[in-house]
Design a protein around this nucleic acid. Structure first.
Lengths: 227, 227
DNA sequence: GGCGTCTTTGACGGAACTCTGACGCCTCCG
DNA sequence: CGGAGGCGTCAGAGTTCCGTCAAAGACGCC
C-alpha cells in the first residue's frame, strides 16, 4: 500500500486530505509542523509527501531540504502563495510539484498518482531481485530468504539491513550509511546496533557465523556483502 | 547537455520557449504536431518533453500515450484548458506535470528542472571508478583492491592514504598535504606516519616492496602514485 | 491485561588497528 | 672519509573497534 505523509497546520485541510486519501486506500500519516514532519518521514519512510509551505515552526523550504538530505521521496507542495518566486524556490530546493490553494481534490490526487508512478522502479529493470549464494537465496521483491530449501524468518530490521547490503553486493557500505538507511538519518554513531543485527544475520544465514564468508566486516569502515 | 523536445502548434510560443531554453544551454528540438513529435522523440531521445495539448492533428493525450508506450521520458504538459478533468486525464495518461496557459517562464523552467532532476540516475549507484595497474586494480567506490584475483584487505588509514594518492595519479603529493588529508588539518610534520603506512601499502600491493614501481618516493618532497 | 516478539542497551573478552621508538641503509655534502 | 638528514623496516604498547551474550524495555496481538 502506498504511504502518504501529509504536512499541514490547518486541521480542516488535513482532515479533507486524510479522508480522501484513505477512501482511495492510501495509508496516511499526518504532521502539523516541520519538526514532526521530518521525524515522521524518517520513521515511516513514506512513498510520497504532501507539504504545506506555511508551517508554524519552520520555513517549508527548509523542510524540503531536510528531506532531500537523505531521500528522493516525491514531494508535492501546497501553498497559498501564487508568486512565481516561491514556486521556483520550492521546486529548485527539491520539490516535485507545486499546487496553489485553493486546489481541486481531483487534480491533487492526479498529481499525487503521477508523482508516485514516476518514483516506481522500472519493471524489469532491477530484476536481479534474486541474489544467490551457494548457501542461501535472497528474493528482494518477495522479501523472502531461503536457506537449504527452507524459508528463513527475518525481523523487519534484519530484513532492512540485509536489503541495503544486498543492493550493494560487493561494495563496502559504511557504518554511517547503514545506520542512516535502516534506522533513520538522525542515527550515525550507534554502531552497537550494527554489531547486534549483523550477528543475527550471520547466525541465521552463515554456515559458520564465527567465520562469515558473506557478511564481511571491514574494521573501522563498514560491512560488505559478498556472494 | 540536456535535450528538450517542444511540441506546440503556436509559433510564438515555440519561439519563446526555444529562445529561453537555448539561453540556458538546453539543446532544443521542436515539433508542431503530434505525428512529428512522436517521430522526433524516437529519433532524438529527448531528456524531457514539453507538450501543448491543443494540436492540429491528434489529441494531446494520444501523444502522451504514444510516448509512454516505449519511454519514461518526463512529459510536461501545457494547456489553455483549466478544467480539472483535462488535467486528471493528462496526468493519468502518463504526464508528469501540467501547466496552464498563460504561464510564467520562470515557473515553467523551474518545473522543467524538477522533471529533469527527478529522471537523473542516483549518483554513486553503479558508476564505479576503477583504476588499474598491471599488478592490481583499485575500485574507489566499492572500496576494493584486487591483486592477482584476490581481494586485498586495507585498514581505514591505508585506504585513505591510497585514495588521496590515486586521486592524484601521476602528480606529486606533498608530505604535508598527505598528512593533512589523512590525519587531519592539525598534522603536517609527522612524516614517520607516512613512512610506516607507505610501507604497508607497498607490502600489500607492490610486487617488490623494496623497489616500488607504483608508490614512488620523492625525497624531501612527498609521494607519487603511478599506474 | 498477559504474552510473545522485536528492539535497545550494557558489559566483557578478544581482535584489529594506530602509534611509537629503535635501528640500519642510503644519499648528499663538507 | 665521516657525519647528517631522510627514508624503510620491524616489533611492541596502547587504544579503538568488534563479536557475543544476556537482560531490560517497547510494541503489537490475542
Amino acid at each position: 500500500m502506498t504511504r502518504v505523509l501529509v504536512i499541514d497546520d490547518e486541521p480542516q485541510i488535513v482532515r479533507a486530505l486524510v479522508i480522501n486519501l484513505k477512501a482511495r486506500h492510501y495509508e496516511v500519516d499526518a504532521a502539523h509542523d516541520g519538526a514532526g514532519a521530518l521525524q515522521l518521514a524518517a520513521a515511516r519512510h513514506p512513498d510520497v509527501v504532501v507539504l504545506d509551505l506555511g508551517l508554524p515552526d519552520m520555513d517549508g523550504v527548509e523542510v524540503i531540504r531536510g528531506l532531500r538530505g537523505w531521500t528522493r521521496v516525491p514531494i508535492l507542495v501546497l501553498s497559498a502563495r501564487h508568486s512565481s518566486d516561491e514556486k521556483v524556490e520550492a521546486l529548485d530546493a527539491g520539490a516535485d510539484d507545486y499546487v496553489t490553494k485553493p486546489f481541486g481534490m481531483d487534480e491533487l490526487l492526479a498529481r499525487l498518482r503521477a508523482a508516485v508512478r514516476r518514483a516506481e522502479p522500472v519493471p524489469g529493470d532491477g530484476d536481479d531481485v534474486i541474489v544467490e549464494t551457494e548457501r542461501f537465496t535472497v528474493d528482494l521483491a518477495a522479501k523472502k530468504v531461503n536457506r537449504d530449501g527452507r524459508d528463513v524468518r527475518l525481523t523487519p530490521t534484519e530484513w532492512h539491513l540485509l536489503e541495503v547490503l544486498v543492493r550493494n553486493t560487493g561494495r563496502l557500505v559504511s557504518q554511517k550509511q547503514l545506520l542512516q538507511e535502516v534506522w533513520g538519518p538522525s542515527y550515525g554513531t550507534e554502531t552497537n546496533y550494527l554489531r547486534v543485527y549483523m550477528a543475527q544475520l550471520r547466525r541465521k544465514l552463515e554456515a559458520d557465523p564465527a567465520h562469515p564468508r558473506h557478511f564481511i566486516t571491514e574494521p573501522g569502515m563498514g560491512y560488505r556483502f559478498e556472494k
